[in-house]
């Protein structure tokens, strides 16, 4: 199993930390992982994306142009990465702020209203965990228990009280992911 994934959105949406949690969860179940952020002069308010690879084998290139899955969280990223999903692959997006919805018919498309659900839960910071939940429902590459284990191992003890909230957010994402276009 090798999953090559891009998560793309605005800086500050938790794109990079979502990737990090996923990578950490992979380590918890003895998989190989890589996490490669786009880094450059564009930072605050600009676009941010990260390539995450989780695999049973040694990982080759951490830099890719074609992905198994794209998680897209703003319009700029939709414009840039809709075309980068391999045929038969998966696109998950939050419709918040999206003016042009994905049009491809050769990939699986799912929607998650992460921004709305997180604000209904009373904490917009858990937006990325709602989206992560949606992704793990569609593609359960890591087990939920390993995500929690990863959070425990990567977060300083003073943040451990937030783990149940994060778990709720993941579960909310899992329950609310919507099929938009599914291949036969």
């Amino acid at each position: 199993m090798t999953e090559e994934l891009i998560i793309a959105g605005f800086g500050g949406q938790g794109v990079l930390s979502m990737g990090k949690i996923l990578a950490y969860s992979g380590i918890m179940q003895d998989q190989e992982v890589s996490w490669m952020p786009s880094y450059g002069p564009e930072m605050r308010g600009g676009t941010a994306n990260v390539t995450v690879i989780v695999s049973d084998e040694r990982i080759s290139s951490p830099i890719l142009t074609i992905f198994d899955t794209a998680i897209i969280l703003n319009q700029q990223s939709m414009d840039k990465f809709e075309k980068s999903v391999r045929p038969g692959g998966t696109l998950i997006y939050d419709p918040n702020g999206i003016t042009r919805h994905p049009e491809r018919t050769d990939i699986n498309i799912y929607q998650i209203e992460g921004a709305r659900l997180a604000s209904e839960m009373g904490n917009t910071k858990i937006f990325n965990m709602v989206v992560l939940g949606a992704y793990l429902k569609v593609n359960p590459i890591v087990k939920l228990e390993n995500v929690i284990k990863g959070l425990k191992n990567s977060l300083p003890a003073r943040y451990h009280k937030l783990i149940p909230l994060n778990e709720d957010a993941i579960n909310t994402g899992m329950k609310n992911v919507v099929d938009m276009h599914i291949l036969n």
């Binding site: 996490w35 952020p37 880094y39």
Partner: peptide, 10 residues
């Protein structure tokens, strides 16, 4: 280089 320096791995 910047790739190896900036990326995260196990």
């Amino acid at each position: 280089d910047g790739v190896i320096g900036q990326m995260m791995e196990k």
